[in-house]
Design a protein around this nucleic acid. Structure first.
Lengths: 212, 212
DNA sequence: ATGTTTTCTATTGTATACAAAAAACCATTA
DNA sequence: TAATGGTTTTTTGTATACAATAGAAAACAT
């Protein structure tokens, strides 16, 4: 956690940069990611770039074909289904732990994020709205008090964001989706486990169906 | 999956080797892992070694203090609790998916592993017995048909094995633990969800309590 | 024209050299 | 003696050069 402040080494910077390029759609699925050209683009040597690519590969964002080229992954429909399956299970766990461990401020933060997410969607800023949606779910993972679970969410989140890129959602359908966040918060505050499960189930299914 | 066959690049070999050194206790928690001396030990340059260390760091086996040294992680009691918490949840998910997706041969394989695991413990070969215990749980993750879940298990498994090193368990207590595998298999064959949950709960709690 | 072999080129894998920073050491001082 | 400051040493961060291999292109045979 503490190196988040000092992290100035090129590997991590490059990693974050390429990650953003992938998640913004600048680098598309299937596109090749040659070390040489990217290192020239960023003005760094191949060493930190290789380390960045390896990490991206571990996080499932690029496919590192050994002794050959690297390319941005394409998430198949079946993989998306599997990710949603695991995600639903873990979101339920995270929400239940959140109830036990979160402070009132954490709930307030969720409300703020949720409101802003909805507002950004109304303003038509899809990209920023997506980011806040991710943040909403990550905040639950953070507030649940289980760092191991948070790490798993981090890895899943990258691939979920990648899936979003291929979703063609209308603004109103997205609004419905985002509004579920408030319902979830309410259910968590009341501690109603069954309700949480059903809300999340419909929430994640919504997410998955939109992508397939 | 396919590079498991061809993987002959030094980074991965070194990674596996160091991982084994850590999980066998040859490299103890808190011990420093300097690049230079290890690269000399393995007869490779620092480049593949660095890549191996980065990966080990991503898998939570070593702590890479930026611009400083690397050391084998020490899993605190609280972290162990968190890992067990997530693990229990995911084992239940995996077992339920296993029921739906596994072939009869998969069940047979579980039985074989479980039996051999028990035998090795009776023979006093703790290390090999532990390995088969890990394999048992990994086979469930493999057979459940969700690769994403399998990947998460892979990461958790490394840390769980590390925890085992500090457990001081008697042979008979271990035998009790291993015997629960057969009960779990039976419950999975009958498809009794509630029973699976209670078995796994006591199984994982056993694991955790032994480590704290 | 098509399939196969061969050569070439582009790209990754590895080693090494140098730069930068942190940790360890030691002398100095209050 | 404990604390402090500067110096040395160790260790990591980065760049670059060379080796090896896979993919692409070209030459060849059928």
């Amino acid at each position: 956690m503490e190196q988040l402040i000092t992290r100035k080494n090129l590997s991590d910077q490059v990693h974050d940069h390429i990650k953003r390029m992938i998640l913004s759609g600048e680098l598309k699925g299937g596109e090749r990611v040659p070390e040489a050209s990217l290192s020239k683009l960023f003005g760094v040597s191949r060493t930190p770039l290789r380390e960045a690519l390896k990490k991206l590969s571990d996080y499932g964002l690029i496919y590192l074909k050994p002794r050959s080229y690297a390319e941005v992954v394409i998430i198949t429909e079946d993989e998306a289904r599997q990710i949603a399956e695991v995600r639903l299970d873990l979101e339920i766990l995270a929400a239940k732990l959140f109830i036990k461990n979160a402070a009132p401020e954490d709930f307030q933060e969720l409300r703020n994020i949720s409101e802003q997410c909805l507002k950004l969607n109304e303003e038509g800023d899809k990209g920023a709205s997506f980011e806040l949606d991710s943040l909403f779910h990550m905040k639950i993972a953070e507030g649940c008090g289980n760092f191991c679970l948070y790490e798993i969410f981090e890895k899943l989140d990258a691939r979920i964001q990648l899936l979003r890129l291929n979703q063609k959602l209308t603004q109103s359908s997205l609004a419905d989706y985002i509004k579920q966040h408030s319902i979830l918060i309410a259910a968590m505050e009341k501690g109603e486990g069954n309700l949480i499960e059903s809300i999340l189930t419909s929430h994640i299914i919504h997410d998955f169906h939109a992508s397939s």
